[in-house]
Design a protein around this nucleic acid. Structure first.
Length: 257
DNA sequence: ATGGCGGCTCGCAGCCGA
């Protein structure tokens, strides 16, 4: 079973690339972030034609998330239960006995901003909610753009990024707290050493120069982590014409009994 | 120290992302 996450940075612009990518990679489940589309404009028909059912919650200009699945989605819901948020950042649904969570964690802008305080509050609510989900769903995967680089290996220049938003200690501690619920950072299970990135700034030729961050993650509960046999970052998609600034991440899990 | 790129909007400049 192939699970993927991709911050597409505008589904309207990236739809042709996404359809090509779905055709090539054929993930069973793909979680999308930053669709930036109102629900009335979501291209559900294009995905149906490609063999995918979609669950989505969007808004104009910012945010917006979607789960695409080849198999039917059940128990689908938007948002963090018990946490009111006008920003469309979270979806959850079940597919094939797995509980999927698709998340677009707030960016935080800078550590001295209101947006950063919102990010930390949001992460606390999200973590409490995922904890509750885990009590009912032992096969759980959280996929998305976390806007957090967990440690030095995930940052091209850790000295320059020290204390900055995306790499500040409170954010990294929030990420660690999420893992401590019983989730594994799937990519690091299989690739524990070395710099790996999923995002590169559009500016300064950052991609060509290898200046990136690893902020998109696939977290797996124990039973899924045990059966995870491959995880990769699809850097090819960052190198195409008019790319998203994020590359997709794809995890493969051997079939569960 | 700044802005750099790209996407968005009842746009023609400014906000936001990361």
């Amino acid at each position: 079973m192939k699970l993927a996450t991709w911050n597409v940075n505008s589904l309207k612009v990236r739809l042709p690339q996404l359809l090509d990518w779905l055709d090539r990679e054929r993930p069973d489940v793909a979680c999308l972030q930053e669709t930036k589309l109102e629900d009335s404009k979501f291209p559900a028909q294009a995905f149906r034609a490609a063999g995918y059912t979609a669950f989505f919650a969007g808004q104009k200009t910012y945010n917006g998330v979607a789960i695409l699945s080849r198999a039917p989605l059940t128990e689908a819901a938007a948002g963090i239960a018990g946490y009111s948020d006008p920003q469309q950042r979270v979806l959850s649904a079940c597919v094939d006995g797995l509980r999927i969570v698709c998340a677009y964690v707030p960016n935080g802008q800078s550590v001295d901003s209101d947006k950063y305080r919102y990010k930390l509050e949001w992460l606390a609510a999200f973590t409490a909610w995922v904890k509750a989900l885990l009590t009912k769903n032992e096969r759980l995967a959280v996929l998305g753009d976390f806007n957090i680089a967990p440690d030095e290996r995930d940052v091209h220049d850790p000295k320059a990024w020290g204390g900055q938003v995306l790499f500040s200690l409170p954010e990294r501690e929030a990420f660690r707290a999420l893992l401590s619920l019983g989730l594994s950072d799937s990519l690091r299970l299989l690739e524990p050493a070395g710099q790996l990135f999923t995002w590169w700034d559009y500016r300064m030729n950052a991609f060509r120069r290898g200046m990136g961050l690893r902020i998109d993650h696939i977290l797996l509960s124990g039973p899924l982590a045990q059966r995870c046999n491959a995880v990769r970052i699809d850097r090819q998609m960052r190198g195409v014409e008019r790319p998203s600034d994020h590359a997709p991440v794809i995890a493969e899990i051997s079939r569960l009994p």
